[in-house]
């Protein structure tokens, strides 16, 4: 069961290839994390899945349909995207934000039907924001605010949720808060989640499937335990690390030893005298 099949995808910005001939399959009903160092093409990959970027070569298949051939409203009913660092105008209330998630379903004269109201209320409940629904976004905590954006995507009622660095600029507690909310959606409704994560240890903790990228290409992709290995960390991140099983979850836990260069320096015996 695949959600997306990416077929020899190349995306160029001018001369530079942000993605270079990537072929990859992303499983359905799974939480997938795309990881890699800055500028490796992970956001470009996610944005290509969401059709925000046009491929220079190759194609992206949703199920067995080329995404570029799908009607845009139909696509928005099947795939939701939360871009990185989204901005809302001042004084926008949570419910007004989340209500926009119904846009793919409505006509311009039909802005707040009863089903819209029910679905938006449900999205607020599942993200734990019912009590703050009428509050302006800027009065919420960072975690609540990000959950409101997740609720917007949720109101689209899609099977697939794409998240671009959903934890950027958040405190650790809020990072966990947002990712707990997202994985709970996956657990309860089987939503397919594909997210770009900057933080490897969060990826190891929350994702079942991991795609590791470097320099516009996929280095490794597969179940989390097979991808998060000392060899991958060395090859992709230039980091020496040990992987130990998390005592609570059994998931891989990364214990960094330092950057590859420092590691070598430190282990060399220091000449004395």
């Amino acid at each position: 069961m695949t959600a997306f099949h990416i077929d020899s995808l190349t995306v160029r910005f001018g001369e530079r290839a942000a993605l270079d001939d990537v072929t990859l399959t992303l499983p359905r009903h799974t939480v997938t994390a795309i990881v890699g160092p800055n500028g490796c093409g992970k956001s470009t990959l996610l944005r290509s899945l969401a059709r925000l970027l046009r491929p220079t070569q190759g194609r992206v298949l949703l199920g067995d349909e080329d995404v570029s051939g799908i009607d845009r409203r139909d696509f928005a009913r099947r795939v939701a995207l939360l871009p990185q660092g989204p901005q809302a105008p001042d004084n926008l209330s949570v419910i007004d934000l989340v209500a926009r998630g119904r846009d793919p379903y409505r006509r311009w004269f039909d802005q707040w039907s009863r089903p819209d109201e029910d679905i938006v209320t449900d999205a607020l409940r599942r993200t734990g924001l019912e009590d703050v629904a009428d509050r302006p976004l800027e009065t919420l905590s960072g975690g609540q605010r990000q959950r409101a954006w997740v609720a917007l995507a949720l109101a689209q009622r899609t099977d697939i949720l794409l998240l671009d660095e959903p934890t950027t600029y958040l405190d650790l507690a809020h990072q966990l808060d947002v990712l707990d909310t997202v994985t709970e959606l996956h657990r309860r409704d089987g939503v397919t989640v594909v997210m770009v994560l900057h933080d490897l240890s969060l990826a190891a903790r929350y994702a079942d499937h991991v795609v590791a990228m470097r320099s516009g290409g996929v280095v490794e992709a597969g179940p989390v335990a097979e991808v998060i290995t000392p060899a991958m960390l060395r090859a992709v991140f230039d980091v020496e690390a040990q992987i130990v099983p998390d005592p609570d979850t059994g998931r891989p836990l990364i214990v960094p030893r330092g950057g590859a260069h420092t590691w070598r320096t430190v282990t060399q015996p220091v000449p004395v005298g």
Binding site: N91, L92, S93, I95, D96, A99, R107, F109, D110, Q111, W112, S113, R114, D116, E117, G128, V132, D134, R135, P136, T139, L140, S141, G142, G143, Q144, A173, H174, D177, D180
Partner: peptide, 28 residues
């Protein structure tokens, strides 16, 4: 899970909205 808001609203609420539905036309 429950995290207190960074700052509490001081009477700042976007005005209350009521649903209006007439036939196929609806709005808040």
């Amino acid at each position: 899970m429950s995290v207190l808001p960074a700052r509490m609203p001081r009477g700042r609420r976007s005005g209350a909205r009521v649903p209006v539905r007439v036939g196929p036309v609806s709005a808040r």
